[in-house]
């Protein structure tokens, strides 16, 4: 049974988006928009499936479309063509501390972040101590976040997120967080998550992490799937890519 199914997914961005003028908007609203000379295709017909309980990595060089793909799977934006189907509850960790505010204390940030991730008040109170213990910043929990060291802030953010108990966990390059001890704790947490039969989709550039946590990999290049298969095979091919003639 597939948990994530992507079929021929296209995603197009417009390069001039930033300073688009009013008349361009009028033209695109009334003229149907699409394409145009400033279109940039981030994903060009990407298809892949993730089965229940599988752990899949998305690899590729910068700008290959990995983060766009994760955003689409998370439901932050819609594909221009093709379809994405998800079964079960998804939790995404696309950037640590999005939603954290430096003027709020650690405690207030935990509550805010938990609410954003979709927890109820009761659940949040229930897991509050576990989050604080996991983060190891107990002594500073009532201090504003701006007084934290950057490592402490990231650890707190990660601690809230790893307490998410979804059916599908999506993680974008945030696994290399904190010191060695903390990383070991995080990897333990993800291994437990996998042992519980949950589905895992991640982006990472760290070979060790990928080999340890993933079964399969999808290799993206310039918005297209180059290769899809066992993690070892794909990583090997990906590393040998420089030798390949373009």
């Amino acid at each position: 049974m597939n948990v994530i199914t992507c079929e021929n997914v296209w995603k197009t961005f417009h390069r001039r988006t930033g300073q688009k003028l009013f008349r361009d908007h009028l033209a695109s609203w009334f003229g149907g928009g699409g394409g145009g000379p400033h279109a940039f295709h981030a994903l060009k017909g990407v298809s892949f499936q993730v089965a229940d309980g599988e752990s899949v990595a998305v690899i590729g060089s910068n700008g290959a479309g990995k983060s766009t793909l994760l955003s689409l799977v998370t439901g932050l934006t819609q594909p221009d063509r093709g379809s994405i189907r998800i079964r079960g509850r998804v939790a995404a960790l696309l950037e640590l501390g999005s939603g954290f505010h430096p003027d709020l204390t650690g405690r207030e940030n935990i509550f805010l972040n938990a609410a954003l991730l979709g927890f109820t008040e009761k659940q949040t109170r229930g897991m509050f101590d576990a989050i604080v213990d996991f983060s190891g910043v107990k002594d500073f929990i009532d201090e504003p976040l701006r007084t934290y060291s950057s490592g402490m802030g990231v650890r707190l953010a990660f601690s809230v997120a790893v307490n998410v108990d979804p059916d599908v966990l999506i993680v974008d390059e945030v696994l290399a967080v904190g010191d060695q001890d903390f990383q070991a704790k995080c990897h333990d947490r993800i291994r437990n998550f996998r042992r519980a039969g949950k589905t895992f989709l991640c982006v990472s550039h760290n070979k060790q992490v990928l080999l340890e946590l993933c079964d399969r990999a999808v290799w993206l290049d310039h918005g297209e799937v180059v290769m899809c298969g066992k993690i070892e095979d794909v990583l090997e091919a990906y590393q040998g890519r420089a030798a390949l003639p373009k």
Partner: peptide, 20 residues
Amino acid sequence: MWRGEYRFLLKNLILKDFRV
């Protein structure tokens, strides 16, 4: 996609604005 508690989210977002 998001299946959280609206009241809890709203409360925390408003508290954030107010505190900040």
